[in-house]
Simulated scan of single mutants.
Amino acid sequence: MYKAILFDLDNTLLDYDFSEQDSMKRTIEHHRQELADFQWDLFRSTFGPINWTYWIERVQRNLTIGEVLHYSFRDTLEQLGHDHAISPRLAQTYWTLFCSTCHLMEGADELLGKLHGSYRMGIISNGIGEAQRGRLKKGMLDHYFDHLFISDEVGFYKPHREIFDTAVRTLGVDHSEVLFVGDSLQDDYHGAAGAGIDFCYYNPLAKPLGQSHRPAYMIHSLSELIHMDTHNQWIKRTAP
């Protein structure tokens, strides 16, 4: 029987993709007069890969989130032939908006309300503390969680087991008494498996599992987790 349930945050409980796009569109609109002949689709397709490269290199290069965003906007505007002097202002506007934007995955609020009080609950996220805490507060979800384990605050990143061990130790339970729910096979599944924690794969797009992936559970909607809890269906299985 589980005593604690840990969740990934982005694209598990919070809709990161929609929140990012919403914040970005409002950023561009806010600075519209400074961006002549701006084309949204071209900007998005150019910004995405540049931003991802800076994001994955941020730890190795010791970059702050402000630098990641500034450099991403700068390189994108330069590549598209725009004046990149505006990039620091774009970065600041975007970050302010994103940290206060919360769009939930379908069923997230109902799920947390059902589980709250029955389990110790926490978040394990590779995000930035300011954003993750701000978005949870904006969505009025922060009170559901006993602890937040955010990589830039804890000093460890999924899939390294240290962040999972820190969470288990802080919650005061055994590894066998914890269920971790997430949407990433790379960060979430391998991290939980490496730490000896049961993993529930949230897979709304029904992506096929690789032969090496054997999560204890797989769900396609968060409401399935409510059903499993309500009917005490915590029997280890790998869903088809």
Rank of each mutant, 00 (worst) to 15 (best):
residue 239 A to L: 00
residue 163 I to A: 02
residue 218 M to Q: 13
residue 125 S to Y: 03
residue 97 L to C: 01
residue 21 Q to V: 09
residue 237 R to K: 07
residue 34 E to P: 08
residue 61 R to Y: 14
residue 168 V to H: 05
residue 90 L to F: 09
residue 155 G to Q: 06
residue 230 T to K: 11
residue 179 L to S: 13
residue 126 N to Y: 12
residue 18 F to W: 00
residue 98 F to N: 11
residue 14 L to D: 02
residue 111 L to I: 03
residue 94 Y to A: 08
residue 13 L to H: 04
residue 59 V to R: 15
residue 128 I to D: 14
residue 159 P to K: 07
residue 49 P to W: 00
residue 131 A to W: 02
residue 69 L to R: 15
residue 9 L to A: 06
residue 61 R to I: 05
residue 9 L to S: 04
residue 79 Q to Y: 14
residue 217 Y to C: 00
residue 90 L to Q: 15
residue 164 F to I: 08
residue 132 Q to L: 00
residue 184 S to K: 02
residue 143 H to D: 14
residue 192 A to V: 08
residue 65 I to K: 13
residue 133 R to V: 12
residue 20 E to T: 05
residue 133 R to Q: 13
residue 7 F to W: 07
residue 137 K to P: 00
residue 67 E to Y: 06
residue 18 F to N: 10
residue 57 E to C: 14
residue 203 N to A: 01
residue 19 S to I: 00
residue 125 S to H: 12
residue 184 S to D: 11
residue 177 E to N: 02
residue 224 E to L: 04
residue 161 R to Q: 14
residue 131 A to K: 10
residue 59 V to M: 10
residue 47 F to V: 10
residue 78 E to C: 03
residue 116 H to V: 01
residue 181 V to P: 01
residue 110 E to Y: 06
residue 86 I to A: 06
residue 215 P to I: 03
residue 140 M to W: 11
residue 65 I to A: 08
residue 134 G to P: 02
residue 141 L to T: 11
residue 236 K to V: 10
residue 222 L to K: 08
residue 43 F to D: 10
residue 155 G to C: 07
residue 165 D to T: 08
residue 233 Q to G: 13
residue 192 A to L: 05
residue 41 D to Y: 07
residue 187 D to E: 15
residue 36 A to H: 09
residue 15 D to T: 10
residue 52 W to T: 11
residue 225 L to V: 00
residue 91 A to K: 09
residue 235 I to D: 05
residue 216 A to K: 09
residue 212 S to Q: 15
